[in-house]
Computed example of a mutant assay.
Amino acid sequence: MSRRIVLWRHGRTEWNAAGRFQGQTDVELDDVGRQQARDSAARLAALEPDLLVTSDLKRTRDTMAMLAALTGAEAELDVRLRETYAGEWQGCTAAEIAMRWPIEYKAWRAGDPLLRVGGGETRQEVADRMKAAVVDAAARLPGDGLAVLTSHGGAARLGIAALIGMPLELFTNIGGLSNCSWSMLREGDDGWILVEHNAGTLPPPVVIEEG
């Protein structure tokens, strides 16, 4: 078997529910997000991960804490797994950004990898640090090991694009990650392969009475 990486998005926050750009603002999980984290952690624990690493922002740390409690492993912090620093856009809705920064918003929507989002980071910078964090975590795994890395929706997608060699201008062709869903990458002979994406979103199974 090959080494595998799970990129797990944090649970829901009030800003997620309101459609506000969070970026690196340290917003906490809401009640729904905490329940999502508990449910998803129970599924991921069954994979018996060898390594747990999380962004240092509270919403990711608290999500990962659910998995750490089930596995008995201690989660490590890696600031490279943070969401994009979105500067002046943080706390704004998409409609507010489109109204206040129409040119920049259009370029962002078009996929410009070198645009400084809200005056903050570029997509290229985020992709580079995410890729480095994944590669460093993978290097510490045994040949058939698995690491779970808790990160953020945009940063995770950029990391996936960088790892599989997709041009960042096309990264939005990788669908969004729902809160507390995850993607799995497997190390192949010629690089990383995306084998699961946005997993964990199925509804609970129907209970059928026997007899």
Rank of each mutant, 00 (worst) to 15 (best):
I5E: 03
V6A: 14
L7D: 02
W8P: 01
E14I: 02
W15Q: 10
W15T: 11
A18P: 07
G19F: 10
F21E: 01
G23H: 05
Q24R: 13
D26C: 07
E28I: 03
R34A: 12
R34E: 14
Q35H: 15
A37M: 06
D39Q: 15
S40F: 01
L44S: 12
L44G: 09
D50N: 08
D50R: 02
L52V: 14
L52G: 13
T54P: 04
L57Y: 00
D62V: 11
T63A: 06
M66K: 14
L67P: 11
A68R: 05
A69N: 04
T71W: 04
G72M: 01
E74H: 15
E76R: 15
L77G: 00
G87V: 12
C92W: 12
C92V: 03
A98I: 00
A98D: 08
R100G: 02
R100A: 15
R100K: 14
I103W: 06
E104V: 09
W108Y: 14
R109T: 11
A110N: 11
R116P: 08
G118N: 08
G119Y: 03
G119N: 07
G120L: 07
E121R: 05
R123A: 11
R123S: 10
Q124D: 11
V126G: 06
R129V: 07
A132Q: 13
A133M: 09
V135D: 06
D136Y: 08
A137W: 04
A138V: 06
R140E: 05
G143N: 11
L146G: 07
A147W: 07
T150K: 00
G153A: 09
G154R: 09
P167W: 02
L168Q: 01
L168T: 04
N179S: 13
C180Q: 09
C180P: 07
C180M: 06
C180K: 00
L185C: 13
R186K: 13
E187W: 08
E187K: 11
G188D: 10
W192K: 02
L194S: 08
H197M: 10
N198M: 08
N198K: 05
A199D: 00
G200S: 13
G200P: 13
L202Y: 13
P204E: 14
P205R: 14
V207L: 14
I208D: 06
